[in-house]
Design a binder for these strands. Structure first.
Lengths: 161, 161
DNA sequence: ATCAAATACATGTATATACATGTATTAAAA
DNA sequence: TTTTAATACATGTATATACATGTATTTGAT
């Protein structure tokens, strides 16, 4: 029998020890920031087993999306979740670990093209498995709730000018 | 007349140039991370005018919450949105700018107690004004939508063990 | 064809995160 | 009481963000 021993609900009020929010919109801002930190932290823990940071994992996933095609640095950067990431430097570290390979583009000599190595692919697959298991095990919202959440987050970023 | 010249909707698919999501839950994970980055970036831009980073602003707000009482470093740290922040070092920078003052606790000599200076209070007030104006101007969701969003984010972090 | 602007990437600096370790002080155990 | 463990903070290291600047290459205008 699978017995649920306890349910851990960390309310925002508890997490940041404050309940003085201007309004629900202001609270939502803090809630988004805190939830992102929480998500990053629990995934980083899994990735650490493989010596990868969240950002390095992101770059590997992006490269996998085009594999076996190569990608230039600019293309990788444009797909990053955090747009100001210093992609050349993240690639430096992946290259040191021999998870990716740099080469010069023949089309445009300014470009550096990046390729996943076999080792990069296999570490990515292990990480994906771990991270997916974590998500399935920890995040208990269903697809319908997630869809509402996605719609609301997109509404947050919808700006009129 | 207040004419709305254009509406800027940055969908997640456009932002990270991918539409291959395992399911809505997985997409929600990326959406939370991207929205947090977006929020941080637009606020950081306002704070930069005052030479403050997002984290320094967070520390000042926390100190204001107890003002005129002092707070020890541990108490500040426990209220941070990002729990792994290196609060002593953030305080180093605030102290250099004379926005806070460090002193020794008389009760427990291990503790360092932090006080907002007058200059710290006034810079915080200016920042709050700027940030609130930004939020009101840019975020177009209403309080009811924000309340649903808050409930969903709390559901995301609700884990069974 | 030549020069100026734009592009792609690398690199440098300040600040932050994440985490390990060091130091002084306090609390607790033998 | 003495020793040990825990606590509070400071500091050190690797990696990341945010942003400025440098260099080589390409594009575009004259």
């Amino acid at each position: 029998m699978n017995v649920c021993t306890y349910i851990c609900i960390v309310k925002l009020e508890t997490a940041i020890q404050s309940n003085k929010f201007k309004n629900e919109v202001h609270k939502a801002g803090l809630n988004i920031l805190y939830t992102a930190w929480w998500l990053k932290t629990i995934t980083a823990k899994e990735l650490k087993e493989y010596g990868l940071t969240h950002e390095q994992y992101n770059v590997l996933r992006i490269l996998k999306g085009k594999y076996p095609d190569q990608m230039c640095v600019r293309d990788v950067a444009s797909r990053m979740i955090e747009k100001n990431s210093n992609v050349p430097r993240i690639i430096d570290r992946l290259e040191l670990k021999k998870l990716v390979k740099r080469s010069n583009s023949s089309i445009d000599k300014r470009e550096t093209v990046i390729t996943l190595t076999q080792s990069g692919i296999s570490i990515l697959e292990s990480c994906n498995k771990k991270v997916n298991e974590l998500m399935d095990g920890i995040i208990s919202i269903n697809n319908q709730e997630a869809a509402s959440l996605n719609a609301l987050l997109e509404r947050v970023r919808e700006t009129e000018k």
